[in-house]
Design a protein around this nucleic acid. Structure first.
Length: 425
RNA sequence: GGAGGCGUCGCCUAGUCUGGUCUAUGGCGCCCGCCUGCUAAGCGGGUUUGGGGCUACAACCCCAUCGAGGGUUCAAAUCCCUCCGCCUCCGCCA
């Protein structure tokens, strides 16, 4: 939720922000008029209510005819109060709906436009030249089979398309990645967390996932619970309805959880392999900090993501995601896209978002500072999304014989193994 | 799943039976001031959160807020209903 004050004081800035995302600014006027209607309704209600309270005080002292008259008067007033209260509630509702449908105001630095209007900030490493090395790279599906690491057929048999089993060395690889990520996070001062992947509607709404992305969210039948698409959801709601001591900020959490996505609307995209699946596990960085520090923290999250990708010796580029592709919560987003050899392109592996006070306003999380209670910011960034990372590692570090070289940083987490060998026979 | 108990402004707590000076008591903690070689103690004051009015976004005034939502009533922390959470016991279970 954006700051209502910003809407009131600088509606043109909000209009411009809508345009930058390619959205209509009708909602701005709707929200503005709802706001003034709401305030009028509040004044009305408070006038009646105040009068009612004043008269109510006289009743216990009154006697006889005086009391009868008072009771008659207050009875009428009670009806007005009730009516005004209902009108106020309706006005609040309309205002809140309008306000909530306005996404976060993108940062000045965020490129305008949609999905294709991103700006490449940096390219790290060089994609391997398999032609020069004299062999055709195998895709992760084939490598997964050779190594006995990924069982997609049985994933489909048991759970349907876009599911998989990680088997043997594949399972070990995920556990190694989790531990590498968690160790890095712990060393950087993060509190390690294992977060629930089923959450109440409040958490889902609060993080903005019931807006545009609603179609992508699994809802549990008959249970008023949702499966999270990222532990960001649980972590943003973790401190809901709390006022955090400003001195404890930034609070940095590294949360592990499975993630579930319907992938509605992506039929036909990435239908093979484990690039796009309905479930995967992820270690996510989640930070609560001050609004003043948020932009700097965003850069730090990106730095930690790069550090992790560097450990895995991957080639990648960092992009500044365009406004139209930010999602409702973020005001700026950096994606790290790793080179996938058999696709001949960079694919998103991690994503770091600065959500400023958009989520904390919805979830009632604030900070107590010397100069008062103020809104605070949340940020999130992927440290390691297992499936796509496994794809990148296998394909990038494969060798002509179908074996895969283990990046050095990962070896301590794989019993010192330097190479993953194809299964015999 | 069954039975019972509990939920008060940071923490503890009074108030709920018997609705109305509850404008929610007291203590602890915290903040400001006084006092004071320093510290402690003592004394005085302040200390939920959200919203609105008016404005300099101050001060001030007002409304809401006693787990949440309804209801009864002129009036609800207090009575009634529903829900949520926590605790105890039983059952079940990894």
């Amino acid at each position: 939720m954006i700051d209502p004050k910003l809407l009131r004081d600088e509606p043109d800035r909000v209009r411009a922000a809508q345009a930058k995302r390619g959205l209509s600014d009708d909602v701005v006027d709707r929200a503005l008029s709802a706001d003034s209607a709401r305030r009028a309704a509040i004044v009305e209600f408070e006038r009646f209510r105040g009068e009612q309270k004043q008269l109510g005080k006289l009743i216990p002292k009154a006697t006889g005819d005086e009391k009868v008259a008072l009771l008659e008067q207050t009875k009428k007033l009670a009806a007005s109060v009730k009516e005004a209260e209902a009108a106020q509630a309706a006005a609040e509702e309309e205002w809140s709906t309008a306000l909530r449908s306005i996404p976060n105001v993108a940062a000045d630095e965020t490129p305008a436009g949609g999905e294709d209007d991103f700006v490449i900030l940096e390219t790290v490493g060089t994609p391997r030249d398999f032609a020069a090395e004299g062999f055709e790279p195998r895709d992760h599906i084939e490598l997964g089979k050779l190594l006995g690491a990924i069982d997609i057929e049985r994933g489909a048999k048991v759970s349907g398309s876009r599911f998989y089993f990680l088997t043997g060395v594949g399972a070990q690889l995920e556990l190694a990645l989790i531990n590498l990520a968690m160790d890095q996070a712990r060393e950087a001062g993060f509190t390690q967390m294992i977060a629930p992947s089923l959450v109440k509607p409040r958490a889902m709404e609060g993080t903005g996932f019931l807006d545009q992305a609603a179609d992508d969210v699994y809802r549990v039948e008959g249970q008023d619970l949702y499966l999270v698409g990222t532990s960001e959801v649980a972590m943003a709601a973790y401190h809901s309805d709390e006022i955090l001591d400003g001195a404890t900020l930034p609070r940095r959490y590294a949360a592990f959880s499975p993630c579930f996505r319907k992938e509605a609307g992506s039929h036909g995209k990435d239908t093979k392999g484990i690039i796009r699946v309905h479930w995967f596990d992820k270690v996510e960085m989640f930070v609560y900090t001050t609004l003043e520090d948020a932009a700097a923290e965003h850069e730090r999250l990106l730095a930690w993501e790069k550090e992790f990708l560097n450990k895995l010796e991957l080639a990648y580029q960092v992009i500044d995601v365009a406004a139209g592709d930010l999602g409702p919560s973020a005001m700026r987003k950096f994606d790290c896209e790793a080179w996938i050899p058999t696709q001949g392109k960079y694919r998103e592996l991690t994503s770091a978002s600065n959500c400023t006070d958009f989520q904390t306003r919805r979830l009632d999380t604030r900070g107590r500072f010397e100069d008062g209670t103020k809104p605070i910011a949340t940020l999130n960034g992927t440290l390691c999304a297992m499936t796509r990372t496994i794809v990148a590692v296998l394909e990038t570090h494969q060798q002509a014989d179908g074996s895969v070289r283990v990046p050095e940083a990962l070896r301590p987490y794989l019993q010192g193994r330097e190479v993953l060998e194809p299964l015999g026979g």
